Simulated scan of single mutants.
Amino acid sequence: MRYFAVTFFVLLSFSAFSQQTTVRGTVVNDNTLLPLWNINIVNVNLVRGAITDAKGNFEIEANVNDILLISSLGFQSIEIKVTNDWIKNKSSRIHLTEKAYALEEVVIPPYDLTGYLEVDSKLIPEKENYWYSISGLSKRYEGGENSPNAFSRVVGSLFNPADMLYNFFGKKPKELRKLKELKKDDKLMSLLQTKYDRETIYLLLGIDKKDLAEILERCSYSDTFAQTANDLQILEAISGCYEEYKILKKK
């Protein structure tokens, strides 16, 4: 019996140890086959991040069947599943394809400028977003651009018992835990500060573009914030909004 217990403990320890490892890879340009530097790698299951070095090499914590998002500006993003073969072979070669961009027409609005800064600064309209503070909360809320119903939308969003944000994370607790895991990985936080494509957000939270737009609207963030914030700011906004909503709901 003692032998069985020891054997079981050893096997259990080995199993726990073998579940998570470090995988390595090299990212190259599919056209030139040259190594690509500063490519972003995100493990969306473990919420870990890495960046390729000057030789295109990277290493990241991963389990079998974890999904890695490989992305960079100017290249088509790809999702790769970690396999037993990858872990067994220690390394993998990954090819990224360059994007083909078509330049869009740029329209310059007609302003009759005089050339004098003091005069021209008053001629060009400035968009202003209203911010509201709610007693007991440390964070301010954006109410949108020149909206007379901004404040009512903020309060309505926070106190609506059928709020989409609450329902979403109530059914997907794993996704909410991923938001908290972000703060444990400095590499991933730094990586997300440079990303604006929302691809990592979609994979981490299991949502699409429409869901994200509705979440930010429910949290009373303006279109300006949704369009200009980096991925880390978006994720922190969602996390903060949900945590404060839970406090208000308890009260």
Rank of each mutant, 00 (worst) to 15 (best):
E217K: 14
N38L: 14
Y196I: 09
M164A: 14
S77C: 05
F159C: 05
K249Y: 14
G115T: 01
D208R: 03
E175Q: 15
A62G: 11
L203S: 15
G136S: 03
Q20W: 03
P110N: 12
S220H: 07
D223A: 14
D208T: 02
G115F: 01
R24N: 15
P110K: 08
E175P: 09
D197G: 11
S190C: 07
T52Y: 08
L192Q: 10
L36N: 11
T21E: 04
D163P: 01
V119Q: 07
L205A: 14
L192A: 09
K127D: 12
N63G: 12
I67L: 11
L191P: 11
F159E: 02
R48Q: 13
N129W: 02
V23Y: 04
F4G: 02
K210L: 14
M189V: 02
L176S: 08
Q193W: 09
N230G: 12
F169T: 07
K122D: 04
T21R: 05
A150L: 02
L205E: 13
A50M: 08
K249R: 15
G240W: 04
F58H: 06
Y202P: 01
L192N: 10
N129K: 05
L176V: 11
S138I: 05
L96E: 06
A100R: 11
S239L: 08
Y221F: 15
N29L: 08
N40G: 06
I238N: 07
Y111A: 02
L158K: 08
Y245A: 05
E59M: 12
M189F: 01
P125T: 02
L205F: 13
I94K: 10
K187H: 06
I60D: 08
A213T: 10
L103C: 00
N40V: 04
A5Y: 02
H95Y: 13
N45K: 10
Y111M: 01
S220R: 03
E98P: 12
L204Q: 08
L69D: 01
F168R: 07
D211V: 08
L103V: 05
L113M: 01
